[in-house]
Design a protein around this nucleic acid. Structure first.
Lengths: 205, 205
DNA sequence: ATTATAAACGACATTAATGTCGTTTTTCAA
DNA sequence: TTGAAAAACGACATTAATGTCGTTTATAAT
């Protein structure tokens, strides 16, 4: 079914495996998923899977990076849209994401991050840190931009707001993963988040 | 070393095992810890440990409940202290807790909760849900009380603020577990949290 | 002292996953 | 069309943890 093959073929195959893995991680989370599960889901042999990925940890890391890559929908200022509106929209998007948490990788992500508790591992995967800092930077820049255009009157340093925003979303994600979206009252909390952001950003309307 | 023994003895022993388990969970987290680890740490045989706990999940649940029990330091209005001051104090306490996350069970807690992803398990451990709801109730009551005494002018429903507060703390905990307290700038974020709370609670000073 | 009880012990069978490696199969290039 | 390269296969040895259970040992009551 496949030897001495183009790079293109290998890329295709890899993506195929990553997608199977994604399905596995969505249904089982990170901790309970195994290489065996991925083999079964992808309908591929042990040897084949190991030819592409050394172990589950590496596999997950690649999946994470692959998925992030797809999410090019980053926080870039959009011409002709008010910054505050953009914030609102983003918050709604997060809400949707959280509400269908069972169909996303969010939970597996948290499990994966938590599993890297050793400093050793943290350092061997700089991407993890980078990922967070990139998000901070993007949000910071966005808030700074909004200030420059006179749309925001920040009450706190922009990076503080950025980090805080990330924490709130992550926390709501975590709690919702435990307890379900009804118990944590996601939409109510999103209101509270918007209220906070309004106070911090001081949107001039 | 111990047969036909008083209830008191058994309680002591159990607590001893729980404390050994606690040390294990603090250093290894929940997912990577094993019954074997606990046996080693407690210096006790397989049979002994299993006589007290069926499996790691039950063991953790008991530990969780035991620890919560110790935490009687709950959010009860203190006479002669301003409510807003009490909020401030509590936030500081959380900050300390988060900053020394490597010496606490916080991370293991998150791992444990995430591991209960099945609805089945969620239901068989009602304590998990209760625990969250209890915290919500306590905070809600506190905010309501502060309103009654005229110290707060709430801008949002008290339960919304309560849940939101919990999310922020949990999120910061999670991110700090991944990245360390320096990277997430815990103290800066605590400032941001206090800012938000001030806006939501409208403390009359 | 003696003895019934049950706490603690630790060997064992079981299960499940891992990573490796020799073999088979397929493809591409000559 | 043939053969070298390597993709895919799957059996296997290894490792590690689990929960059980027959045995040993300490305790407390008589």
């Amino acid at each position: 079914m496949a030897p001495k093959v183009s790079d293109e073929y290998k890329t295709k195959k890899k993506i195929e495996l990553l997608q199977a893995a994604k399905r596995v991680f969505i249904t089982k989370g990170y901790t309970r998923a195994t290489m065996q599960d991925v083999m079964n889901e992808a309908g591929v042999s042990r040897g084949a899977l190991y030819a592409y990925f050394d172990n589950l940890e590496h596999l997950y890391l690649e999946l994470l990076q692959f998925e992030d890559q797809q999410d090019v929908q980053f926080f870039t200022p959009i011409a002709g849209e008010l910054s505050w509106q953009q914030v609102t929209k983003w918050v709604s998007k997060q809400q949707v994401e959280i509400e269908k948490i069972e169909q996303t990788l969010s939970q597996a992500n948290s499990e994966f991050f938590l599993s890297l508790r050793d400093q050793q591992k943290q350092q061997s995967y700089p991407y993890i840190t980078t990922r967070y800092e990139k998000m901070v930077d993007v949000l910071t820049a966005f808030f700074a931009h909004g200030t420059a255009t006179g749309e925001f009157k920040l009450q706190l340093p922009p990076e503080a707001i950025a980090r805080y925003l990330i924490s709130v979303i992550d926390g709501l994600m975590l709690d919702t993963a435990h307890l379900g979206a009804e118990k944590t009252k996601v939409s109510e909390q999103m209101e509270a988040l918007l209220f906070s952001l309004r106070a911090m950003l001081g949107p001039v309307q």
